[in-house]
Amino acid sequence: MARHISIEHGEGGEMTHELIRDLFVKYFGHAEEAKFDAAVLDLPGSRIAFTTDTFTVKPPFFSGGNIGKLAVAGTVNDLAVSGAEPLYLSAGFVLEEGLSFGDLERIVASMAEEAAKTGVRIITGDTKVVEKGSVDKLYINTSGVGVVHPGWELHPEEIAEGDVVIVNGTIGDHGVAILAARGELGVATDLPSDSTSLYPLIRAVRDVGARIRVMRDPTRGGLATTLVEITEDFGVIVELDQEAIPLKPEVEGACEILGLDPLFLANEGKVVFIVPEADAEKALAAMREREEGRDAAIIGRVVGRGEEGKLLLRSPVGSRRRVFRLLGMQLPRIC
């Protein structure tokens, strides 16, 4: 008979113990650390990166991934784009009473698999069970610690006119995959989410000696929001070339049907870099050797610095317009 999570799995007794032993320790391999209330770690170097993120994606399973994969990749990516090597993660689970063990196991297994890609270890965690209806299946929080090795610091202050903006592939895949999984597209697509850990790709860019001025992962809010933030935070003016932005035909089609702008759709396996022009080719070559960097492209340029940063978009007819953050969600009309 299929097993399900019950309220008792969160009560701290034998059932909780079994859940941790038979599921979390089995997949995360942190038997030693799990003996103590806190994991005690050795960290090389002294510059530590530390981040946290909570994952509430609905639905928890979608084409190309699930909430567990997202929870590991998301926190790994936040560390990686901050210039760190991700080392350790925590995982906090809020489980809905009645969640099937099979679903939970699939999620936990893909967390372990995703962690292995980077070599990051999941070493501490927490489990709570809440009454049916209080969450939609489960929420996961992951916190992560990484080290910033000497020389790995980002240098946004060195961003200069002529620097190039690079993205490692097509944008908006995750946003469309989630819409499709929610049944909101009204058309069938099995376009997978791009959800993946970006540390190996970023490492590859570093290993070829490309100088990274700044990098960020354009998740919620999409490429445009991330670039607006970069331009505002560091007082730079970036001009994107609309034609150069990689886009899958499925994403373009879905956006046309639904009246959405792919620039604002979420990504979970993308990183946008600003690098000196001289280093662009080797960075691109290093990315293109990897699956998650196959469609890497130069999508724009830094055209100036100023008090007020700006993101500009050059349209195919040659006109430039300024791009702003969205107010909230995209609310298209389908007529």
Binding site: V317, G318, S319
Partner: peptide, 8 residues
């Protein structure tokens, strides 16, 4: 507006 036709 989006394609820049009006502005251009």
């Amino acid at each position: 507006a989006e394609f820049g036709i009006k502005y251009t």
